[in-house]
Write a protein that binds this DNA or RNA. Structure first.
Lengths: 224, 224
DNA sequence: CGTCATCTTGATGAGACTCAATTGCTGTGG
DNA sequence: CCACAGCAATTGAGTCTCATCAAGATGACG
């Protein structure tokens, strides 16, 4: 139900001072059906320009939401994890594509159902709250993109640490290329930066996708 | 406060089922009083951490919405021009500050009034629409921040051209420092880039704040 | 006409990108 | 079990972009 979702993607790093932003607890659950739809890795969930008939709620797995630029370039706008709601574009057409990164399972709601004539206060309120959360997330991301590579990677690791549950053990579902496209860097820079963190003893890398935070405070402090 | 929307029997989104909904351009301004409040250049309209009691609608002038980072650094998140609605934060406290750049006149609405017990469909609709527009704007801005300096400045000029009305004559209300903080660049880079455009005959600079677009297409094409 | 702001221009260096080579990992087939 | 292919990630070397620091130029205003 929606209530569980709010905290999940509420705070995108850099952490706002305190937990000032309280969105009202959402109560209704009726907008999503109970049938799960599954996607295989790299399978497209929706593409730019398609109609915005559905909204999605992550049950498991990881999704990248991105926009294609020219020349095979790509900007990843968000990673969607368990509990996140996505696909709530305002216009009639998708502005971003969404692809499964690993095995993904989602709940789907038709827009016409949830935002149609029968919509009640609770629903509209939840959808508005979801839009507001998304706005906050993107604002944070825009701040991140104005930072240097060390800060961006640090923020990314802390964000993943928080969102994936385990505070100090990060099992990354996405590739270096995905991370690079999310942070507006190249894979080489991402790789070098993480290596640099490892050299300084800030993180440990049992494998490239498995990152252990040994000194999260050091990552926090890079933003000042 | 936003949470206290009355449980009115709202047909909140009376769109025919199946019809993809479109956020209409906000038409009415009725939630705002008719009394204008004025601010002098560099005067603060609200600051980070203050309560989000009011929302604003620009009547004239220019406002910068920004967040202070450490060491006198600053990230400008948006310029607000005539007609823009701003201050619609979802949380209880301001995440950004807002300052008048030049002489500013705004209409003010108390939140409790506009989203209180008397709230009706149109109000909620407009506020959500405003949030959705803001989301889209910030998404666009995030894409911009992933580009190189030439592209950022080009996008900025085109944005101003569009928003300030005159397609090919831009009378900039803000300083180079403001532009730089908006684009995540330095004043020197902004200045050099514009000079470069002038050398190429893409723009003409009667004065530093007065920019004439001689070849807007060239600016467009920088994004591919 | 001087003063202060703002903007431009110049010189230099750090940081990130590019291209290329190497290493590491995983699955597959002999 | 090993060899090898295929892909992902790391590392290296060179280049370029943009930030920094410093110095002029321009413009607004008393």
């Amino acid at each position: 139900m929606l209530t569980e979702i709010a905290p999940a993607n509420l705070h995108v790093f850099p952490y706002p001072r305190g937990a000032r932003y309280k969105f009202p607890a959402a109560k209704s659950v009726w907008i999503f059906g109970s049938k799960e739809k599954k996607f295989k890795p790299n399978e497209e969930i929706f593409g730019e320009g398609e109609s915005t008939d559905y909204i999605y709620r992550m049950v498991s797995g990881t999704v990248r939401s991105y926009r294609s630029l020219g020349q095979g370039r790509r900007k990843i706008e968000a990673f969607r994890l368990r509990g996140d709601i996505f696909g709530l574009d305002a216009g009639e057409e998708r502005e971003f594509s969404a692809e499964a990164i690993d095995d993904v399972s989602v709940l789907i709601a038709r827009r016409s159902t949830s935002v149609g004539a029968t919509a009640d206060y609770q629903t509209i309120h939840e959808l508005w709250a979801a839009t507001a959360r998304e706005l906050r997330r993107v604002q944070q991301h825009a701040l991140l993109l104005a930072m240097n590579s060390r800060q961006r990677v640090a923020c990314f690791l802390l964000e993943m640490s928080r969102r994936l549950g385990e505070p100090e053990i990060i099992e990354l579902p996405m590739s270096r290329q995905d991370i690079a496209d999310y942070l507006g860097l190249t894979i080489e820079t991402v790789s070098r930066t993480i290596t640099q963190f490892e050299t300084k003893g800030i993180v440990k890398l049992p494998t490239s996708r498995h990152i252990v935070l040994r000194n999260p405070m050091a990552l926090q402090q890079m933003n000042e």
